[in-house]
Design a binder for these strands. Sequence first.
DNA 1: CCGCATCCTAGGTGATACTG
DNA 2: CAGTATCACCTAGGATGCGG
Lengths: 135, 135
Amino acid sequence: MPTRTVAQHRDEERREFESFLAQCPSRDLLGTLGSKWVTLVLAALGHGALRYNEILRRIAGISPKMLTQTLRTIERDGLATRTVTPTVPVTVEYRLTPLGNDLLAIILDLKTWAETHVRIIQTARQAYDHPPRNA
Amino acid sequence: MPTRTVAQHRDEERREFESFLAQCPSRDLLGTLGSKWVTLVLAALGHGALRYNEILRRIAGISPKMLTQTLRTIERDGLATRTVTPTVPVTVEYRLTPLGNDLLAIILDLKTWAETHVRIIQTARQAYDHPPRNA
DNA sequence: CCGCATCCTAGGTGATACTG
DNA sequence: CAGTATCACCTAGGATGCGG
């Protein structure tokens, strides 16, 4: 009857919380948005439909692999559609869905907030990293 | 004068884009929010100041290490303050700053959006993962 | 009570080369 | 043109144990 049960209890709590987190819609969204390229691709598509290589050129730092991966993610979530036109060679076009456009609006709100407060945050960071000498 | 310059050009573009990303306030914010625990801690502190162990108990799945790390992050960004009361043993209290409260509001907006649209997204995912047999 | 140091693992990310 | 395959890396995150 020792501390064993306590540890077990904590472990159980942890697992429950983990599965709770896994199902949490906001956590999920944050995870998606947090991935490096998703927001950039959404923003690129915000101006209208684009073809694979157009996006690749527009986002200078992305690799083909990551672009594909990112596109698959947002396509899977119903944020964009993928249209294949069987020309030779094939033409593939990506376009934001209404849902994607809606999310993009939210992202832009976030962007606005970030740009508005970036100064304050940077100041806070400097103060934190270089604490004043006196005390 | 071969393809060398082309490759160099691409590399340069890439580096420029990287440094651009590194300085982008929204990317920075997304990175912070995307980290697993930041939003949860902010939410926990949204109800009022809490002590270290109170947060630890409130967020069942977090480890002490990650809690400390997370708290340092949000403290550094000026989102919360850390107050040490030299009792024995010491009491450490964390409290959201106005900036932190402001950001929390944005997060809650995001949460609302996520919860509103989670159904649609899940449906899209199922359709994507189990494509209809016909064509 | 609060936190740091150390070690470790897993997955997200990237470079490169190849294919239908 | 629009991807896929493979390898390698790096850092976020978890486990554990010690210190003020």
